[in-house]
Write a protein that binds this DNA or RNA. Structure first.
Length: 577
RNA sequence: CGGAACGUGGCGCAGUCUGGUAGCGCACUUGACUGGGGGUCAAGUGGUCGGAGGUUCAAAUCCUCUCGUUCCGACCA
């Protein structure tokens, strides 16, 4: 492409609305423009970058044996009523009516539609396994869209759905997708980790998220330093150490002490001369509206996703002060497990505590010498707290580290949730009707572009990994007033293009400074400059965006040499795995 | 949903407190010079100050309502 003919509206200044670096750079480099909150136009060069991702995804999905199709974005409500999600998907599902007053929604995902296809078209075990995917715009009415392409309301997603004869076969399909995803993100040139994940509203039994490691990530991951274990903190299992010496401690009596005005664990602990580890924290949650008292050690935090899963509800929220008052006739701060008239659940760790401090269930008072089982008995005891770096790896007992990540892919073993709800069955070898065993697999294509930038940038702009770069090489003509130089630059452009490269030719009547700055901002990995060095020595300059490394090459060899370098680098990414 | 901030040419902002002819930088147009890291000079184009209502002789500025955008939070007792 000739730069002079392409719409690439770069800006010198950072738009005020952009907070994170990928959003800032996508705007500054002329990749996207906002229409309204969470909705973006992909300008030509932004679309090119996204199509690079799409192509890699498409190639790897096809290689894994999946077939591409395309489903409607508008979906009828009755399908969602069948699956039960019309009720429980929540306000992220944008619903509306057509002129006949029939209910529809914009697809945030396509399990219902694909299951409908499956029950109509898949009838025999002979047709299985099969994996169908699409690359399509999704709409989710996010509470709070932010960070540009990282959390938009409308975004481009690759979603795939597998159908198998058995749970075991579905496991194979899942494994294939795990491998395909690993190849995809490697080929994109991203630093990422697959982690164990919660399966969320999609449902299902087992899932992994693919996380691009970046500080601006919205998720926190825990990674083992010694083995391959990695998990989202929402999921990461806390392993309890064996009971220590406190197990043999003599149990003291419960004694009520006055702790006026002391609502926070730290204050109470300090006042009573104990550590927060010796305090039991009691929290009132509303689980789908039902009150539940949750116990964790004073220095711990409840992991609400774990709580949600334990209680098998769609939403948990911490009760506000008024609700707490209504339920317990207590101000927040003095609630305790002893004699509490609310369903009680406890983190497993609490059950090991001996002679603990807890709220007395009386304003301005706490109890000392509180002991589980003797003084209170939870209905359920489970792993409910957030993992910390002090915990050890659930697999190898090794030490853990926490890191931030951006979720770019998520794979789920769905089982028969949808096929049973929607009656999608096939006939097995014995002639029996069986529910299809499903898996679903998503990649946030537009988010991959943002994540790549989050991970690859410097103060001058984007640094695209070669496989994702909208252009692989930019040719700068710095001798626009000189016909010979211009002819040489033009020929360089055409030669590189003829070598099969994606080339941007900067033929604009701009000063050199602007051309350099724009080339850097756009993040094009290779830059070839035709200018003074060509006029004097017959050589062109080659500059690598990532390292800044510059060298000169004889003009006659340059196009072949640059093409060879780029092709070699691309091959090295494609041969992964 | 709760809290906060902001809305003034395409972008970034000043002006609002203390009402009195709408300004600056960038971008854009024309010309000249310049030509290797966002150049200089000169002359220009472009804004009913988010919208509605009110107060006033007079409103970007004060008051009320409204719309939009962004950020933070969503409660650890």
């Amino acid at each position: 492409m000739r730069y002079s003919q392409m719409l690439i509206p770069t800006t010198k200044e950072t738009p005020a609305e952009a907070e994170v670096v990928s959003h800032q750079l996508l705007l500054r480099a002329g990749f996207i423009r906002k229409l309204t909150s969470g909705l973006y136009t992909y300008l030509p060069i932004g679309l090119m970058a996204m199509q690079k991702v799409e192509n890699i995804v498409r190639q790897e999905m096809n290689r894994a044996g999946a077939q591409e199709l395309l489903m409607p974005m508008v979906q009828p409500a009755d399908l969602w009523q069948e699956s039960g999600r019309w009720k429980n998907y929540g306000p992220e599902l944008l619903r509306f009516k057509d002129r006949h007053d029939r209910d529809y929604c914009l697809g945030p995902t396509h399990e219902e539609v694909i299951t409908d296809i499956a029950r109509r078209e898949l009838h025999s075990y002979r047709q299985l396994p099969i994996n169908l995917y699409q690359i399509q715009t999704k709409f989710r009415d996010e509470i709070r869209p932010r960070f540009g392409l990282m959390r938009g309301r409308e975004f481009v997603m690759k979603d795939a759905y597998s159908f198998d004869v058995s749970d075991e076969a579905a496991g194979e399909s899942y494994k294939k997708m795990h491998e395909a995803y690993t190849r995809i993100f490697k080929r994109c040139g991203l630093e990422f980790r697959p982690v164990e994940a919660d399966s969320g509203t999609i449902g299902g039994s087992f899932s992994h998220e693919f996380m691009v490691l970046a500080d601006t990530g919205e998720d926190t991951l825990v990674i083992c330093r010694e083995c391959d274990y990695a998990a989202n903190v929402e999921k990461a299992k806390v392993v309890l150490p064996k009971k220590g010496e406190q197990a043999d401690q003599e149990l003291l009596e419960c004694i009520k002490v006055a702790t006026p005005g002391m609502k926070k664990v730290d204050r109470v602990a300090e006042f009573l001369g104990v550590t927060p580890e010796e305090v039991i924290k009691t929290m009132i949650y509303l689980a789908d509206g039902e009150p539940v008292a949750v116990l964790v050690r004073g220095d711990r935090e409840v992991q609400s996703v774990k709580l949600k899963n334990l209680l098998n509800v769609t939403e948990v929220e911490l009760a506000d002060d008024d609700t707490v008052w209504k339920l317990t006739k207590l101000p927040v701060g003095y609630i305790g497990p002893v004699g509490i008239p609310i369903k009680l659940v406890a983190d497993q760790e609490v059950m090991q505590m001996v002679n603990a401090v807890a709220g007395a269930g009386e304003k301005g008072h706490h109890l000392t010498g509180v002991n589980p089982d003797r003084d209170f008995t939870p209905v359920i005891t489970s792993d409910l707290r957030q993992i910390t770096v002090e915990d050890s790896c659930p697999l190898c007992n090794g030490s853990l580290e926490l890191t931030e990540g951006i979720e770019v892919g998520h794979i789920f073993k769905l089982g028969t949730n949808y096929s049973e709800a929607m009656d999608a069955t096939f006939q097995d070898k014995e002639g029996c009707q069986q529910p299809l065993v499903m898996g679903c697999y998503g990649i946030g294509v537009s988010r991959v572009v943002a994540a790549a930038i989050e991970q690859n940038h410097d103060p001058n702009g984007i640094i695209f990994p070669l496989p994702l770069a909208p252009f692989q090489v930019i040719v700068l003509n710095l001798g626009l007033k000189n016909e010979e130089t211009t002819a040489a630059a033009e020929k360089m452009y055409l030669d590189l293009q003829a070598a099969g490269l994606d080339v941007l030719y900067d033929d604009r009547d701009e000063r050199p400074g602007s051309k350099f700055k724009d080339a850097d901002l756009l993040g094009i990995p290779y830059r070839v400059t035709v200018g003074k060095t060509w006029e004097k020595e017959g050589r062109v300059e080659l500059c690598l965006r990532r390292s800044g490394e510059t060298s000169t090459i004889d003009y006659d060899q340059a196009s072949a040499e640059v093409a060879a370098m780029i092709q070699a680098e691309l091959r090295s990414t494609e041969n992964i795995g």
